[in-house]
Every structure is written in C-alpha cells, then in structure tokens.
Simulated scan of single mutants.
Amino acid sequence: MSRGPAFVALFAVSALLGGCGQVVSGHPAPADTVAVGTTAPPTTGAGADQVSLRVLAGRWTGAYRCGQGETALTLTIDPPDGTIASAVFDFGPSPVNPAVPHGSFAMGVGYVHDVLTFTQRRWITRPTTYSMVDLVAVEVSPVRLAGTVTGQGCTTFTVTRDRG
C-alpha cells in the first residue's frame, strides 16, 4: 500500500508534536541540549472535568521521589497562552534529604489526551549529574496535583497550592 506525501507530512507533524524523543534520566546531557519528554497514555474520565490551566496558574510546593530520594519541589505555573502554559520546576533539599542540591528547569504544561502533562524544556540551574524529568498528573484539583515522575529511578510527586 502506497502512502502519499500528505500522509508522510501528517505523520512527521504528529511525531514532532507527540514528543517521540526521550531523555534517559540519571545521565547528564550536554548543557545546551533541549530535551523532549514523553507523554502518558490517556486516562478515562478527564475530558470535560479538566481543571483549566488558568485555574492552575500559581505556586505549588511539595516533593518528588527519584534515585536521590525525597526531594523538595516547587512548581510555578504561569497563566496559559491558549492551551499551553509555562512552568518552572525548582528542586532542592528536603527535611529528610538535606544533601540534595538546588536546581531548576523550564517546562511546558498542557493537557495531552486529557492528561495534565509537564514536559521538560531547558535547564535554568543545573546541578552536575542531574537530568530533567517530566510529570504526569493523575490527580488534578485546584489545590492539589499528584502523579508520576517520568525518569529512570523516579516514582511519584505531590504538590499543593501555596496560599496567598
């Protein structure tokens, strides 16, 4: 079966927008690398019940877990520009893991197949040996976000909205 140029162009665009690239966490990437994350499969029941990105804009604090152990996390989500928002993933020491260095990177935020997805973009402050990760929020409310951290040796994250 022969596929025409329109199919090839459509496939290329969908692959580009779908984030088919992947960075393996745990191994440093060159400082000038802009990584593309992966996305999670769709979940059921999101659709019309999505919390809008405008409502999610603000500062969120909590923790995530990867190979280095529990790590403090602050997510700052900017107001959206259409269906996409920007965010900063800021991490550092936690009370139970004070040896973790500070670092931060920019992210894109949006719904992919009705799943709130945070996708790595570029480093702001990079500690040696750390890699960027993506987040897939399986619990989304105006006051709490929780889900999985996409990266080798990573598991979960939980953040709550800062008051004020």
Rank of each mutant, 00 (worst) to 15 (best):
V8C: 02
M107T: 06
M1K: 01
P101W: 11
T150V: 15
F157C: 03
T33M: 13
A99I: 02
V159M: 03
F105S: 00
P142V: 07
S94Y: 01
R54G: 14
V159K: 02
T33I: 13
G45P: 06
L145M: 11
T156F: 14
F91L: 05
Q22L: 05
M1I: 00
T156R: 15
P5F: 08
A31N: 04
S86Q: 14
T76F: 03
P42M: 05
L73G: 04
T117L: 06
Q22C: 04
A6F: 08
T44C: 12
T148F: 07
A72P: 10
L145R: 02
S52F: 02
V34L: 14
A48M: 12
H102W: 06
V143W: 11
T74V: 14
T150C: 09
Y64E: 07
F91I: 02
T76L: 01
T119W: 03
D49G: 09
P127W: 07
V115K: 01
R65C: 04
G92Q: 04
V34A: 15
Q152M: 12
R54D: 14
V115A: 03
L56G: 05
G37Y: 01
V136H: 13
P28N: 08
I84V: 14
F157V: 00
H27I: 15
Q22V: 06
H113D: 13
A46Q: 03
P101N: 12
A63C: 09
R144C: 00
